[in-house]
């Protein structure tokens, strides 16, 4: 891959569902080794954007390129993408163990009808070590806490040694310490040249780790450096024109309108 070619390249992408336009005229590039944070209110189209990059939703208009190709034509190359979906509550009672789920990340690589090789087992183990769940490898999924489950899904995404990571609110339901560890892990992955798109409501954390921030509310309302994150523009994009930051204490708080105190991540319902 040549350095000049962006890993992700969107031009005037519009996604219309039957009764609803989810994304409109989005243009965005992400270069190799860059960490882009995607923020925006509920229903803004963030998940839709990731699905466009995965090739599971095709845009109504505009062009999308991932690794220089249309995502739905990536075929085998899909394994170069690691994905952590937003909510995974439906499968929390499925009788499989952590190591089985992590190995699923490599199934596309292993090939139909084949069994995992020692190399596959090593890669799965490495992924579990990286996210700190090696001690849980024999644990059945139904016994995990929400945060442990999230880390398992991250390990699954990492197991295929991806070059592009698409993470949809990966730290929702993860405690602050684990969340910080998680973003440090992303820092390390990025310095290994992995390109990362992470959807988050955690503006404070995002500001500390991202190279750039894209604020989406159907349209791309702002795309810039994280220093701009605390500016009124991002808050306006997310919570309307009256939102401001109250910068006291370790956790940034904000005021919406006049009275209502909200931490950004509390906007998100069940998570």
């Amino acid at each position: 891959m040549n350095e000049a070619q962006p890993t992700v390249d969107l031009r005037d992408v519009t996604v219309e569902f039957r009764y609803h336009t989810a994304l409109e005229d989005i243009s965005l590039h992400v270069h190799p080794g860059e960490l882009l944070a995607v923020v925006g209110p509920n229903g803004a189209g963030k998940t839709t954007l990731l699905k466009v990059l995965l090739g599971t939703i095709r845009p109504t208009r505009g062009t999308v390129r991932v690794f220089g190709r249309e995502p739905w034509r990536l075929g085998e190359q899909r394994r170069r993408i690691g994905y952590v979906p937003q909510r995974t509550t439906g499968i929390s009672n499925f009788p499989v163990r952590v190591r089985d789920v992590v190995m699923m990340g490599r199934y596309g690589r292993i090939g139909v009808g084949r069994r995992p090789s020692p190399e596959d087992h090593e890669a799965a183990q490495r992924a579990m070590d990286r996210v700190g769940i090696a001690h849980l490898r024999e644990e059945p999924i139904p016994r995990l806490s929400g945060g442990q489950r999230q880390r398992t899904f991250l390990a699954r995404a990492l197991a295929s040694d991806p070059e592009l990571l698409l993470l949809d609110e990966p730290t929702t339901g993860v405690d602050i310490l684990a969340s910080e560890t998680f973003y440090e892990l992303l820092d390390r992955l990025r310095s290994n040249g992995i390109t990362i798109l992470v959807v988050s409501h955690d503006i404070g954390v995002v500001a500390a780790h991202a190279d750039s921030v894209a604020c989406i509310n159907q349209r791309l309302t702002l795309h810039g450096r994280p220093e701009e994150v605390k500016s009124g523009a991002v808050l306006a994009c997310m919570y309307g024109p009256h939102a401001t930051f109250l910068d006291h204490g370790p956790v940034p708080h904000m005021v919406v309108g006049e009275h209502v105190h909200l931490r950004p991540d509390e906007k998100d319902g069940d998570g």
Binding site: L54, T56, G75, E76, R78, R79, I81, Y83, P85, T88, I91, F94, V96, D100, V101, M104, G105, R106, Y107, G108, R109, I110, V112, G113, R115, P116, R156, S160
Partner: peptide, 23 residues
């Protein structure tokens, strides 16, 4: 027997199965 892991994968999470490159 032949498609054991593939069937497990689509049963567990069809969207992820597709994303990891399985048909």
């Amino acid at each position: 027997g032949v498609l054991f892991k593939e069937l497990l994968s689509i049963t567990f999470d069809p969207e992820m199965a597709e994303v990891t490159g399985l048909p």
